[in-house]
Design a binder for these strands. Sequence first.
DNA 1: AAGCAATATGTATATTTTGTGAAAACTTAC
DNA 2: GTAAGTTTTCACAAAATATACATATTGCTT
Lengths: 222, 222
Amino acid sequence: MKLLVVDDEIRIREVIKEYAYHEKYEVIEASNGKEAIAKVKEHPDIDFIIMDIMMPILDGISANREIKKIKEIPTLMLSARKEEYDKLQAFDDGIDDYVTKPFSPRELMARIKAICKRNKEEDVFIYQDLIVDKKGHTVKIDQKEIKLTPKEYELLLFFIKNKNIALSRETLLSQIWGYDFFGDDRTVDTHIKMLRGNLGKYRDLIVTVRGVGYKFELSESN
Amino acid sequence: MKLLVVDDEIRIREVIKEYAYHEKYEVIEASNGKEAIAKVKEHPDIDFIIMDIMMPILDGISANREIKKIKEIPTLMLSARKEEYDKLQAFDDGIDDYVTKPFSPRELMARIKAICKRNKEEDVFIYQDLIVDKKGHTVKIDQKEIKLTPKEYELLLFFIKNKNIALSRETLLSQIWGYDFFGDDRTVDTHIKMLRGNLGKYRDLIVTVRGVGYKFELSESN
DNA sequence: AAGCAATATGTATATTTTGTGAAAACTTAC
DNA sequence: GTAAGTTTTCACAAAATATACATATTGCTT
Protein backbone atom coordinates (compact mmCIF):
# COMPACT_ATOMS: atom_id res chain seq x y z
CA MET A 1 0.00 0.00 0.00
CA LYS A 2 1.40 3.31 -1.05
CA LEU A 3 -0.15 6.49 0.30
CA LEU A 4 0.25 9.98 -1.00
CA VAL A 5 -0.22 12.53 1.77
CA VAL A 6 -0.76 16.08 0.60
CA ASP A 7 -0.81 18.86 3.15
CA ASP A 8 1.13 22.08 3.58
CA GLU A 9 1.51 21.57 7.32
CA ILE A 10 4.43 19.31 7.96
CA ARG A 11 3.03 18.40 11.38
CA ILE A 12 -0.06 16.90 9.85
CA ARG A 13 1.99 14.91 7.37
CA GLU A 14 4.20 13.62 10.14
CA VAL A 15 1.29 12.40 12.21
CA ILE A 16 -0.31 10.61 9.31
CA LYS A 17 3.02 9.16 8.31
CA GLU A 18 3.59 7.74 11.71
CA TYR A 19 0.26 5.97 11.80
CA ALA A 20 0.62 4.83 8.23
CA TYR A 21 3.98 3.24 8.95
CA HIS A 22 2.35 1.46 11.78
CA GLU A 23 -0.04 -0.09 9.26
CA LYS A 24 2.90 -0.95 7.02
CA TYR A 25 1.88 1.60 4.47
CA GLU A 26 4.49 3.37 2.45
CA VAL A 27 4.09 7.14 2.39
CA ILE A 28 4.91 9.70 -0.20
CA GLU A 29 4.50 13.35 0.65
CA ALA A 30 3.58 16.51 -1.14
CA SER A 31 3.06 19.95 0.35
CA ASN A 32 0.68 21.38 -2.22
CA GLY A 33 -1.52 20.43 -5.12
CA LYS A 34 1.05 21.00 -7.78
CA GLU A 35 3.56 18.77 -6.06
CA ALA A 36 0.86 16.17 -5.61
CA ILE A 37 0.23 15.99 -9.32
CA ALA A 38 3.94 15.61 -9.94
CA LYS A 39 4.17 12.80 -7.40
CA VAL A 40 1.28 10.97 -8.98
CA LYS A 41 3.02 11.12 -12.32
CA GLU A 42 6.30 10.07 -10.79
CA HIS A 43 4.95 7.13 -8.80
CA PRO A 44 2.62 5.01 -10.87
CA ASP A 45 1.75 2.74 -7.96
CA ILE A 46 0.11 5.09 -5.51
CA ASP A 47 -2.93 3.39 -4.03
CA PHE A 48 -4.50 6.10 -2.01
CA ILE A 49 -4.44 9.87 -1.62
CA ILE A 50 -5.08 11.91 1.49
CA MET A 51 -5.36 15.52 0.48
CA ASP A 52 -5.89 18.74 2.33
CA ILE A 53 -8.19 21.23 0.64
CA MET A 54 -6.67 24.56 1.64
CA MET A 55 -3.12 24.71 0.34
CA PRO A 56 -0.84 27.29 -1.27
CA ILE A 57 -0.01 27.28 -4.98
CA LEU A 58 -2.71 24.75 -5.90
CA ASP A 59 -5.64 23.75 -3.70
CA GLY A 60 -6.75 20.21 -3.06
CA ILE A 61 -9.94 20.34 -5.06
CA SER A 62 -8.21 21.51 -8.21
CA ALA A 63 -5.37 19.09 -7.73
CA ASN A 64 -7.80 16.24 -7.30
CA ARG A 65 -9.57 17.24 -10.47
CA GLU A 66 -6.31 17.16 -12.38
CA ILE A 67 -5.24 13.86 -10.90
CA LYS A 68 -8.55 12.27 -11.79
CA LYS A 69 -7.79 13.10 -15.37
CA ILE A 70 -4.58 11.17 -15.13
CA LYS A 71 -5.87 8.19 -13.23
CA GLU A 72 -8.45 6.92 -10.80
CA ILE A 73 -7.11 6.79 -7.24
CA PRO A 74 -9.30 6.59 -4.14
CA THR A 75 -9.10 9.91 -2.35
CA LEU A 76 -9.90 11.18 1.10
CA MET A 77 -10.11 14.92 1.62
CA LEU A 78 -9.06 16.79 4.70
CA SER A 79 -10.47 20.15 5.57
CA ALA A 80 -10.67 22.70 8.31
CA ARG A 81 -14.12 23.28 9.70
CA LYS A 82 -14.66 26.67 8.16
CA GLU A 83 -14.15 25.35 4.69
CA GLU A 84 -17.67 24.02 4.65
CA TYR A 85 -18.30 25.35 1.22
CA ASP A 86 -15.39 23.53 -0.26
CA LYS A 87 -16.78 20.27 0.92
CA LEU A 88 -19.71 20.45 -1.38
CA GLN A 89 -17.54 21.16 -4.34
CA ALA A 90 -15.30 18.27 -3.54
CA PHE A 91 -18.09 15.84 -4.13
CA ASP A 92 -18.23 16.60 -7.79
CA ASP A 93 -15.00 14.83 -8.35
CA GLY A 94 -15.41 11.41 -6.90
CA ILE A 95 -14.12 11.95 -3.40
CA ASP A 96 -14.49 8.77 -1.41
CA ASP A 97 -14.57 10.32 2.01
CA TYR A 98 -13.56 13.41 3.86
CA VAL A 99 -12.50 14.20 7.37
CA THR A 100 -12.46 17.54 9.11
CA LYS A 101 -9.54 18.82 11.09
CA PRO A 102 -8.71 18.22 13.79
CA PHE A 103 -9.06 14.50 13.24
CA SER A 104 -8.22 11.36 15.08
CA PRO A 105 -5.42 9.63 13.17
CA ARG A 106 -6.82 6.27 14.13
CA GLU A 107 -10.15 7.15 12.64
CA LEU A 108 -8.42 8.36 9.52
CA MET A 109 -6.66 5.04 9.12
CA ALA A 110 -9.86 3.15 9.76
CA ARG A 111 -11.62 5.12 7.08
CA ILE A 112 -8.88 4.49 4.58
CA LYS A 113 -9.21 0.81 5.27
CA ALA A 114 -12.97 0.96 4.89
CA ILE A 115 -12.68 2.60 1.49
CA CYS A 116 -10.07 0.17 0.27
CA LYS A 117 -12.10 -2.74 1.49
CA ARG A 118 -15.11 -1.47 -0.36
CA ASN A 119 -13.19 -1.14 -3.60
CA LYS A 120 -11.99 -4.68 -3.22
CA GLU A 121 -15.40 -6.10 -2.51
CA GLU A 122 -16.92 -4.60 -5.56
CA ASP A 123 -16.84 -6.68 -8.65
CA VAL A 124 -14.31 -4.33 -10.00
CA PHE A 125 -10.61 -4.79 -10.30
CA ILE A 126 -8.64 -1.59 -10.40
CA TYR A 127 -4.95 -1.21 -10.98
CA GLN A 128 -3.95 2.30 -11.85
CA ASP A 129 -5.81 3.00 -15.08
CA LEU A 130 -6.74 -0.56 -15.73
CA ILE A 131 -10.31 -1.27 -14.69
CA VAL A 132 -12.01 -4.60 -15.06
CA ASP A 133 -15.73 -4.70 -14.41
CA LYS A 134 -16.71 -8.29 -13.97
CA LYS A 135 -20.43 -7.70 -13.96
CA GLY A 136 -20.36 -5.60 -17.04
CA HIS A 137 -17.75 -7.81 -18.61
CA THR A 138 -15.77 -4.79 -19.66
CA VAL A 139 -12.16 -3.73 -19.47
CA LYS A 140 -11.11 -0.13 -19.51
CA ILE A 141 -7.74 1.49 -19.89
CA ASP A 142 -7.55 5.24 -19.42
CA GLN A 143 -11.32 5.46 -19.32
CA LYS A 144 -11.50 3.84 -22.71
CA GLU A 145 -13.06 0.48 -23.18
CA ILE A 146 -10.91 -2.13 -24.85
CA LYS A 147 -12.39 -5.09 -26.62
CA LEU A 148 -11.28 -8.54 -25.58
CA THR A 149 -12.33 -11.86 -27.02
CA PRO A 150 -13.91 -14.31 -24.56
CA LYS A 151 -10.70 -16.27 -24.13
CA GLU A 152 -8.65 -13.17 -23.62
CA TYR A 153 -11.09 -11.95 -21.03
CA GLU A 154 -11.14 -15.24 -19.19
CA LEU A 155 -7.39 -15.33 -19.28
CA LEU A 156 -7.21 -11.85 -17.80
CA LEU A 157 -9.65 -12.72 -15.03
CA PHE A 158 -7.68 -15.80 -14.20
CA PHE A 159 -4.50 -13.80 -14.05
CA ILE A 160 -6.12 -11.26 -11.77
CA LYS A 161 -7.34 -13.96 -9.48
CA ASN A 162 -3.88 -15.49 -9.40
CA LYS A 163 -1.77 -12.38 -9.49
CA ASN A 164 1.89 -12.64 -8.70
CA ILE A 165 1.84 -16.38 -9.14
CA ALA A 166 3.63 -18.11 -11.99
CA LEU A 167 1.16 -20.20 -13.96
CA SER A 168 2.20 -23.03 -16.21
CA ARG A 169 0.66 -23.53 -19.61
CA GLU A 170 -0.90 -26.73 -18.39
CA THR A 171 -2.51 -24.96 -15.47
CA LEU A 172 -3.89 -22.29 -17.74
CA LEU A 173 -5.14 -24.83 -20.23
CA SER A 174 -6.85 -26.99 -17.67
CA GLN A 175 -8.33 -24.07 -15.74
CA ILE A 176 -9.45 -21.89 -18.61
CA TRP A 177 -9.87 -24.28 -21.51
CA GLY A 178 -11.03 -27.19 -19.42
CA TYR A 179 -9.58 -30.55 -18.57
CA ASP A 180 -10.79 -31.95 -21.86
CA PHE A 181 -8.70 -29.75 -24.07
CA PHE A 182 -6.29 -31.78 -26.12
CA GLY A 183 -4.73 -29.15 -28.30
CA ASP A 184 -1.30 -27.68 -28.44
CA ASP A 185 0.38 -26.14 -25.36
CA ARG A 186 1.54 -23.28 -27.43
CA THR A 187 -2.00 -22.14 -28.04
CA VAL A 188 -1.57 -20.33 -24.75
CA ASP A 189 1.23 -18.30 -26.23
CA THR A 190 -0.97 -17.07 -28.99
CA HIS A 191 -3.63 -15.91 -26.56
CA ILE A 192 -1.03 -14.26 -24.38
CA LYS A 193 0.17 -12.45 -27.44
CA MET A 194 -3.33 -11.22 -28.19
CA LEU A 195 -4.01 -10.20 -24.62
CA ARG A 196 -0.73 -8.36 -24.38
CA GLY A 197 -1.51 -6.54 -27.54
CA ASN A 198 -4.84 -5.42 -26.18
CA LEU A 199 -3.47 -4.42 -22.81
CA GLY A 200 -1.42 -1.70 -24.47
CA LYS A 201 0.66 0.10 -21.90
CA TYR A 202 -0.10 -2.63 -19.41
CA ARG A 203 1.24 -5.41 -21.60
CA ASP A 204 4.17 -5.91 -19.29
CA LEU A 205 1.95 -6.93 -16.41
CA ILE A 206 2.07 -10.31 -18.08
CA VAL A 207 5.56 -11.50 -17.40
CA THR A 208 7.06 -14.51 -19.12
CA VAL A 209 8.45 -17.03 -16.69
CA ARG A 210 10.87 -18.93 -18.80
CA GLY A 211 10.57 -22.64 -18.63
CA VAL A 212 7.29 -22.40 -16.74
CA GLY A 213 4.66 -20.16 -18.21
CA TYR A 214 3.37 -16.73 -17.35
CA LYS A 215 2.72 -14.50 -14.41
CA PHE A 216 0.50 -11.49 -13.84
CA GLU A 217 2.75 -9.24 -11.86
CA LEU A 218 1.48 -6.27 -9.90
CA SER A 219 3.77 -4.09 -7.89
CA GLU A 220 2.56 -4.57 -4.33
CA SER A 221 -0.93 -4.63 -2.94
CA ASN A 222 -4.08 -4.81 -4.94
CA MET B 1 -36.10 12.17 -0.10
CA LYS B 2 -35.94 12.97 3.58
CA LEU B 3 -33.39 11.18 5.76
CA LEU B 4 -33.32 10.95 9.51
CA VAL B 5 -29.78 10.54 10.80
CA VAL B 6 -29.50 9.37 14.36
CA ASP B 7 -26.10 9.30 16.02
CA ASP B 8 -24.66 10.83 19.12
CA GLU B 9 -21.43 11.80 17.41
CA ILE B 10 -21.92 15.06 15.62
CA ARG B 11 -19.01 14.33 13.29
CA ILE B 12 -20.67 11.22 11.94
CA ARG B 13 -23.87 13.13 11.35
CA GLU B 14 -21.98 15.84 9.56
CA VAL B 15 -20.30 13.47 7.16
CA ILE B 16 -23.51 11.69 6.32
CA LYS B 17 -25.25 15.01 5.90
CA GLU B 18 -22.72 16.22 3.40
CA TYR B 19 -22.98 13.12 1.30
CA ALA B 20 -26.74 13.15 1.55
CA TYR B 21 -26.90 16.75 0.39
CA HIS B 22 -24.84 15.82 -2.55
CA GLU B 23 -27.50 13.28 -3.46
CA LYS B 24 -30.12 15.98 -3.00
CA TYR B 25 -31.49 14.34 0.11
CA GLU B 26 -32.89 16.43 2.91
CA VAL B 27 -31.51 15.55 6.32
CA ILE B 28 -33.03 15.69 9.77
CA GLU B 29 -30.83 14.93 12.75
CA ALA B 30 -31.25 13.37 16.13
CA SER B 31 -28.57 12.59 18.68
CA ASN B 32 -30.25 9.74 20.51
CA GLY B 33 -33.12 7.33 20.30
CA LYS B 34 -35.60 9.42 22.21
CA GLU B 35 -34.98 12.41 19.99
CA ALA B 36 -35.33 10.14 16.97
CA ILE B 37 -38.81 9.07 18.01
CA ALA B 38 -39.80 12.68 18.52
CA LYS B 39 -38.49 13.61 15.07
CA VAL B 40 -40.44 10.81 13.45
CA LYS B 41 -43.62 12.09 15.05
CA GLU B 42 -42.78 15.63 14.12
CA HIS B 43 -41.91 14.95 10.46
CA PRO B 44 -44.43 12.65 8.87
CA ASP B 45 -42.52 12.53 5.58
CA ILE B 46 -39.28 10.89 6.59
CA ASP B 47 -38.32 8.34 3.94
CA PHE B 48 -35.33 6.69 5.50
CA ILE B 49 -33.60 6.30 8.84
CA ILE B 50 -29.90 5.81 9.51
CA MET B 51 -29.48 4.91 13.13
CA ASP B 52 -26.54 4.23 15.36
CA ILE B 53 -27.02 1.42 17.84
CA MET B 54 -24.99 2.59 20.80
CA MET B 55 -26.40 5.88 22.00
CA PRO B 56 -27.12 7.56 25.31
CA ILE B 57 -30.63 7.89 26.76
CA LEU B 58 -32.20 5.46 24.32
CA ASP B 59 -30.30 3.01 22.14
CA GLY B 60 -30.92 2.44 18.46
CA ILE B 61 -32.50 -0.96 18.73
CA SER B 62 -35.10 0.16 21.22
CA ALA B 63 -35.78 3.34 19.31
CA ASN B 64 -36.23 1.38 16.13
CA ARG B 65 -38.69 -0.90 17.85
CA GLU B 66 -40.74 2.06 19.01
CA ILE B 67 -40.65 3.76 15.65
CA LYS B 68 -41.82 0.63 13.90
CA LYS B 69 -44.95 0.78 16.06
CA ILE B 70 -45.67 4.25 14.74
CA LYS B 71 -44.92 3.62 11.11
CA GLU B 72 -42.88 1.56 8.69
CA ILE B 73 -39.75 3.37 7.55
CA PRO B 74 -36.77 1.68 5.90
CA THR B 75 -33.91 1.66 8.36
CA LEU B 76 -30.18 1.13 8.18
CA MET B 77 -28.28 0.46 11.38
CA LEU B 78 -24.81 1.68 12.22
CA SER B 79 -22.64 0.12 14.84
CA ALA B 80 -19.12 -0.07 16.11
CA ARG B 81 -17.30 -3.32 15.51
CA LYS B 82 -17.55 -4.74 18.96
CA GLU B 83 -21.28 -4.66 18.97
CA GLU B 84 -21.43 -7.83 16.96
CA TYR B 85 -24.06 -9.22 19.20
CA ASP B 86 -26.41 -6.39 18.45
CA LYS B 87 -26.27 -7.26 14.82
CA LEU B 88 -28.26 -10.39 15.28
CA GLN B 89 -30.87 -8.69 17.38
CA ALA B 90 -31.21 -5.82 15.02
CA PHE B 91 -32.32 -8.02 12.18
CA ASP B 92 -35.22 -9.26 14.20
CA ASP B 93 -36.88 -5.90 14.03
CA GLY B 94 -37.14 -5.26 10.35
CA ILE B 95 -33.77 -3.68 9.77
CA ASP B 96 -33.12 -3.29 6.08
CA ASP B 97 -29.37 -3.17 6.22
CA TYR B 98 -26.46 -2.93 8.55
CA VAL B 99 -23.11 -1.15 8.36
CA THR B 100 -20.22 -1.22 10.79
CA LYS B 101 -18.17 1.82 11.70
CA PRO B 102 -16.02 3.05 10.31
CA PHE B 103 -17.77 3.04 7.02
CA SER B 104 -17.15 4.52 3.64
CA PRO B 105 -19.81 7.21 3.15
CA ARG B 106 -20.02 6.24 -0.46
CA GLU B 107 -20.91 2.75 0.48
CA LEU B 108 -23.51 4.00 2.90
CA MET B 109 -25.13 6.06 0.18
CA ALA B 110 -24.98 3.18 -2.21
CA ARG B 111 -26.74 0.97 0.29
CA ILE B 112 -29.42 3.53 0.98
CA LYS B 113 -30.06 3.86 -2.70
CA ALA B 114 -30.20 0.11 -3.10
CA ILE B 115 -32.77 -0.22 -0.34
CA CYS B 116 -34.92 2.58 -1.66
CA LYS B 117 -34.76 1.15 -5.11
CA ARG B 118 -35.84 -2.18 -3.74
CA ASN B 119 -38.73 -0.58 -1.89
CA LYS B 120 -40.10 1.49 -4.66
CA GLU B 121 -39.07 0.41 -8.09
CA GLU B 122 -39.08 3.30 -10.47
CA ASP B 123 -42.25 3.54 -12.43
CA VAL B 124 -40.72 5.38 -15.30
CA PHE B 125 -37.42 4.80 -16.99
CA ILE B 126 -36.02 7.64 -19.02
CA TYR B 127 -32.90 7.65 -21.12
CA GLN B 128 -32.68 10.55 -23.51
CA ASP B 129 -35.67 10.14 -25.78
CA LEU B 130 -36.43 6.64 -24.66
CA ILE B 131 -39.23 6.54 -22.12
CA VAL B 132 -40.58 3.40 -20.57
CA ASP B 133 -43.66 3.81 -18.43
CA LYS B 134 -44.17 0.68 -16.42
CA LYS B 135 -47.55 1.60 -15.07
CA GLY B 136 -48.85 2.65 -18.44
CA HIS B 137 -47.07 -0.26 -20.05
CA THR B 138 -45.87 1.95 -22.83
CA VAL B 139 -42.59 2.65 -24.54
CA LYS B 140 -41.95 5.89 -26.32
CA ILE B 141 -39.13 7.02 -28.54
CA ASP B 142 -39.13 10.67 -29.56
CA GLN B 143 -42.61 11.14 -28.14
CA LYS B 144 -43.87 8.39 -30.37
CA GLU B 145 -45.19 5.21 -28.89
CA ILE B 146 -43.65 2.01 -30.17
CA LYS B 147 -45.43 -1.26 -30.01
CA LEU B 148 -43.69 -4.18 -28.36
CA THR B 149 -44.92 -7.70 -27.96
CA PRO B 150 -45.22 -8.93 -24.36
CA LYS B 151 -41.93 -10.81 -24.47
CA GLU B 152 -40.11 -7.90 -25.98
CA TYR B 153 -41.46 -5.64 -23.30
CA GLU B 154 -40.49 -8.00 -20.52
CA LEU B 155 -37.06 -8.34 -22.02
CA LEU B 156 -36.68 -4.59 -22.12
CA LEU B 157 -37.78 -4.22 -18.51
CA PHE B 158 -35.36 -6.87 -17.41
CA PHE B 159 -32.57 -5.15 -19.25
CA ILE B 160 -33.44 -1.85 -17.63
CA LYS B 161 -33.42 -3.44 -14.21
CA ASN B 162 -30.05 -4.98 -14.93
CA LYS B 163 -28.40 -2.30 -16.95
CA ASN B 164 -24.69 -2.48 -17.53
CA ILE B 165 -24.61 -6.11 -16.50
CA ALA B 166 -23.80 -8.85 -18.97
CA LEU B 167 -26.65 -11.34 -18.96
CA SER B 168 -26.29 -14.87 -20.22
CA ARG B 169 -28.95 -16.48 -22.36
CA GLU B 170 -29.66 -18.88 -19.55
CA THR B 171 -30.20 -16.07 -17.09
CA LEU B 172 -32.56 -14.35 -19.46
CA LEU B 173 -34.44 -17.54 -20.16
CA SER B 174 -34.83 -18.49 -16.54
CA GLN B 175 -35.71 -14.99 -15.39
CA ILE B 176 -38.04 -13.98 -18.18
CA TRP B 177 -39.32 -17.26 -19.57
CA GLY B 178 -39.24 -19.07 -16.26
CA TYR B 179 -37.13 -21.80 -14.81
CA ASP B 180 -39.27 -24.40 -16.51
CA PHE B 181 -38.57 -23.34 -20.05
CA PHE B 182 -36.77 -26.06 -21.90
CA GLY B 183 -36.52 -24.60 -25.35
CA ASP B 184 -33.62 -23.48 -27.42
CA ASP B 185 -31.08 -20.93 -26.14
CA ARG B 186 -31.18 -19.17 -29.41
CA THR B 187 -34.77 -18.19 -28.91
CA VAL B 188 -33.29 -15.31 -26.98
CA ASP B 189 -31.42 -14.17 -30.06
CA THR B 190 -34.59 -13.94 -32.05
CA HIS B 191 -36.26 -11.80 -29.43
CA ILE B 192 -33.20 -9.63 -29.18
CA LYS B 193 -33.39 -9.16 -32.91
CA MET B 194 -37.03 -8.12 -32.68
CA LEU B 195 -36.42 -5.79 -29.74
CA ARG B 196 -33.48 -4.20 -31.46
CA GLY B 197 -35.54 -3.64 -34.52
CA ASN B 198 -38.23 -1.92 -32.48
CA LEU B 199 -35.76 0.18 -30.52
CA GLY B 200 -34.76 1.94 -33.71
CA LYS B 201 -32.04 4.45 -33.00
CA TYR B 202 -31.55 2.91 -29.58
CA ARG B 203 -30.89 -0.55 -30.94
CA ASP B 204 -27.27 -0.31 -29.92
CA LEU B 205 -28.14 -0.06 -26.25
CA ILE B 206 -28.36 -3.82 -26.46
CA VAL B 207 -24.77 -4.89 -26.78
CA THR B 208 -23.89 -8.47 -27.55
CA VAL B 209 -21.31 -9.86 -25.19
CA ARG B 210 -19.70 -12.57 -27.18
CA GLY B 211 -19.49 -15.91 -25.50
CA VAL B 212 -21.89 -14.77 -22.82
CA GLY B 213 -25.07 -13.14 -23.95
CA TYR B 214 -26.30 -9.58 -24.02
CA LYS B 215 -26.02 -6.38 -22.06
CA PHE B 216 -28.08 -3.23 -21.84
CA GLU B 217 -25.43 -0.58 -21.80
CA LEU B 218 -26.06 3.00 -20.81
CA SER B 219 -23.28 5.53 -20.94
CA GLU B 220 -22.98 6.83 -17.40
CA SER B 221 -25.71 8.26 -15.24
CA ASN B 222 -29.25 7.00 -15.11
C1' DA C 1 30.02 -15.20 -28.66
C1' DA C 2 27.91 -19.41 -30.45
C1' DG C 3 24.53 -22.55 -30.07
C1' DC C 4 20.42 -24.10 -28.17
C1' DA C 5 15.97 -23.98 -26.47
C1' DA C 6 12.13 -21.41 -25.33
C1' DT C 7 9.22 -17.75 -26.47
C1' DA C 8 7.17 -14.05 -29.62
C1' DT C 9 4.81 -13.07 -33.57
C1' DG C 10 2.54 -13.16 -38.21
C1' DT C 11 -0.48 -15.67 -41.01
C1' DA C 12 -3.59 -19.07 -42.69
C1' DT C 13 -7.21 -22.13 -41.67
C1' DA C 14 -10.71 -24.26 -38.78
C1' DT C 15 -14.17 -23.59 -35.58
C1' DT C 16 -17.50 -21.24 -32.92
C1' DT C 17 -20.79 -17.85 -32.24
C1' DT C 18 -24.12 -14.64 -33.65
C1' DG C 19 -27.46 -12.26 -37.01
C1' DT C 20 -31.26 -12.90 -39.74
C1' DG C 21 -35.16 -14.42 -42.59
C1' DA C 22 -38.67 -17.64 -43.10
C1' DA C 23 -41.63 -21.09 -41.72
C1' DA C 24 -43.87 -23.82 -38.28
C1' DA C 25 -46.28 -23.92 -33.93
C1' DC C 26 -48.79 -21.83 -30.77
C1' DT C 27 -52.27 -18.19 -28.58
C1' DT C 28 -55.80 -15.26 -28.42
C1' DA C 29 -59.83 -12.69 -29.57
C1' DC C 30 -63.75 -12.56 -31.95
C1' DG D 1 -63.18 -22.03 -36.29
C1' DT D 2 -60.58 -18.67 -38.13
C1' DA D 3 -57.65 -14.79 -38.59
C1' DA D 4 -54.21 -12.05 -36.63
C1' DG D 5 -50.61 -11.72 -33.82
C1' DT D 6 -46.95 -13.89 -31.26
C1' DT D 7 -43.47 -17.24 -30.07
C1' DT D 8 -40.34 -20.70 -31.29
C1' DT D 9 -37.47 -23.43 -34.21
C1' DC D 10 -34.38 -23.93 -37.78
C1' DA D 11 -31.13 -23.17 -41.48
C1' DC D 12 -27.83 -20.60 -43.51
C1' DA D 13 -24.96 -16.44 -43.95
C1' DA D 14 -21.81 -13.46 -41.78
C1' DA D 15 -18.80 -12.28 -38.36
C1' DA D 16 -15.70 -13.13 -34.83
C1' DT D 17 -12.67 -16.12 -32.56
C1' DA D 18 -9.56 -20.11 -31.74
C1' DT D 19 -5.99 -22.91 -33.21
C1' DA D 20 -2.01 -24.58 -35.63
C1' DC D 21 2.02 -23.77 -37.60
C1' DA D 22 6.02 -21.45 -39.72
C1' DT D 23 9.33 -18.14 -38.89
C1' DA D 24 11.61 -14.60 -36.13
C1' DT D 25 13.40 -13.24 -31.92
C1' DT D 26 15.00 -13.59 -27.35
C1' DG D 27 17.44 -15.25 -23.41
C1' DC D 28 20.22 -18.62 -21.33
C1' DT D 29 24.27 -21.77 -20.97
C1' DT D 30 28.69 -22.79 -21.73
